[in-house]
Every structure is written in C-alpha cells, then in structure tokens.
C-alpha cells in the first residue's frame, strides 16, 4: 500500500473525510442495526408497536424458538447449498465469459457486453416474471420448443431450484464478467502476451496469471456473490410462489419473511435477521482469513 506522506501527517483528515458518510450511516444503519439486535430479544408484534401492549422481554426466547424449529434447520441447509451452487456457477460463468471476451473480435465483444448489461439492468422482479413466463407449463415458449406440453418445472425440488438458480446466475454473472474483464484489461499487455508466447492455453493463463494478479478484485466479487446469493429473495418468492410446493424451495430470507414479517412478528423476524447476518459474517471472515494466509490482506 502506497502512502501519501504529506496527507498522512494530518491525523484528523480521515475523520473529516469519513464524516459525511458516517452522518448518513450512523443514524440510518448503525442505530437501526442496534435496534434490530434489541428487538430480537423481545416479543414484539403489531399489537406492541401500535396497540399500547408493552413489549415483553423474552431474552433468547426468539432464538430458542428458531433453533428448536426443525424447519429452520432444513431451510438453512437448503439455503447454504443453493447459495453455494449459485455462487460457484456465477463465478465460473462470469470468469469463463470474461476470458472469452478477451479473445473475440470487437463486434462480438460489444454484442456480448450489451446483452450482459441488459440482463444486469433487469430488476429481479421483472427478470423472475419473464423467466417464469418463458417456462410456464402451458403458455411458455420453452415447453413448446422442447415438446413438453404441460411439463411443470416447479414440481420437482431440484428442477425448481435449478430453474431459479439459472435466473439468479443470469442476473448476477454480468457483474462478475464485466468486473473481471475490466480487470484483465488492466493487466499490462506484455504480461498476457508473454503467457500466450509460452503457449499457455486460456485456462492456464487464467489460473497462473490472471487469478494471482486480480486477487483483490476476485475477493470483492466472491464476497459480494456470497452475500447476494445467500440473501436471495425475489427470485424464489416470485418464481416458486413463496417457497415452492409444500415449502420445498424455501430459502432463509423467504422463510424469515413468511414466518415473521408478513405476520408482523418483528421480534422473531429480527432474530432471524441477526442469525443470517452472523452466518454471513462467519463465512466472510473465514474467507478473508484464508486469503490472509495466502498473503492477501483486506
């Protein structure tokens, strides 16, 4: 890390620079976050919020109720597997296409990056609805083309997860692709050419040259993907109509919404929120620690 010797001497400067952001983030984030932790310890629903019923302190009662619920554990397991799958596929697709972009002509590059931007631009809600329409059992184009009239893509748990996963990947690979492509572009031409002269194939170049050089960028991409995919909500909620047949496609965020927010059990909902945050934090810290061991720092 290079430092600017002159500016460094001004000890208070960073504070001044951070101040505007903190003025927004402390009241809009830190304090509500504190409230979230607080709420998770109370029996707090709509009658408590507006009905003048006193909020009852239940200690870890909400957490106990949650951990004692078998459904919670199966949903948690399902969410981890689904999110991990989405992260891996998103990264693989994004990275492969980024490499592809470096090897194609101008026209193909422009076409592909525009297509990716279009997928990226589509709000999660509209993307999910369009895909659902494409895979509709009766009116959908896909069944028509595949000659599977009436086939229900949401009937089997794994097929439904695969379909929703495809939409999640469709929404999120452009970020990975464009970020990595831009990163590759920033690697000096000479380094890449040297690799090509050595006769390295695309995969070797990627692993030996690009991954090490882009590690900071990859770190960001991985962490963001983990965070986004673990919290996936809209795609599951819209496409499987709130968790699938008999709840077979439930993920944690939808579960929290159904269990807690839709019926205004804010205390329980906050507890689920705290649990989700802690899980994500643990995963991220593990990842960061692994990175540090291999010589990278935050």
């Amino acid at each position: 890390m290079r430092r600017s010797a002159t500016i460094r001497r001004q000890r208070l400067t960073p504070l001044w620079l951070l101040l505007p952001a903190l003025v927004v983030l402390v009241p809009m984030f830190a304090y509500p976050l504190y409230q979230l932790g607080l709420l998770s310890l109370f029996d707090y629903g709509q009658p408590q919020v507006s009905g003048g019923v006193p909020a009852r302190f239940v200690g870890l009662g909400n957490f106990r109720a949650l951990f004692g619920d078998q459904v919670f554990w199966s949903v948690l397991g399902q969410t981890v597997v689904f999110a991990a799958g989405c992260v891996v596929v998103t990264l693989a697709v994004g990275a492969a296409l980024a490499m592809l972009l470096t090897r194609v002509g101008r026209v193909a590059r422009t076409v592909l990056s525009f297509a990716a931007l279009a997928a990226w631009a589509a709000p999660a809600m509209t993307g999910s609805v369009v895909w659902l329409f494409l895979f509709d059992s009766n009116l959908g184009l896909v069944n028509e083309v595949l000659g599977l009239p009436g086939y229900n893509w949401l009937y089997e748990r794994s097929v439904a997860f695969a379909l929703v996963g495809a939409v999640v990947v469709w929404h999120s690979f452009p970020f990975v692709m464009i970020t990595l492509y831009a990163g590759i572009q920033a690697i000096p031409e000479s380094v890449r050419e040297a690799a090509a002269l050595d006769g390295a194939g695309a995969f070797t170049t990627f692993r030996r040259i690009i991954v090490p050089m882009l590690r900071p960028l990859i770190t960001i991409v991985v962490i963001q993907s983990i965070i986004w995919d673990f919290k996936v909500f809209t795609q599951i909620y819209v496409m499987t109509r709130g968790g699938g047949i008999a709840g077979q496609n439930m993920v944690l965020n939808v579960y929290a919404y159904q269990k807690a927010f839709a019926s205004s059990q804010y205390g329980l909902g906050s507890a689920i929120g705290v649990v989700m945050t802690v899980i994500l934090l643990v995963v991220t810290l593990f990842y960061l620690r692994a990175l540090r061991r291999s010589g990278e720092a935050l």
């Binding site: 460094r8 965070i227 929290a256 927010f261 909902g269 929120g273």
Partner: peptide, 28 residues
Amino acid sequence: RFRFRSRTTILVMFLVAQMVPVEALSIP
C-alpha cells in the same frame, strides 16, 4: 490513503451492513 486505528473495523462494518436482510431493518 490513511491508516488509522479503527480502519479495518470500519471496513468490516461496511461489509456487515450489506449482510443484514433489508426486510429486518425496515422496521427500526
């Protein structure tokens, strides 16, 4: 451009901020 005591803490807090489910925060 600066190194100061709580730098890493602040950075991690920014990450944590993205981890909280939005629905959960909408009440507070």
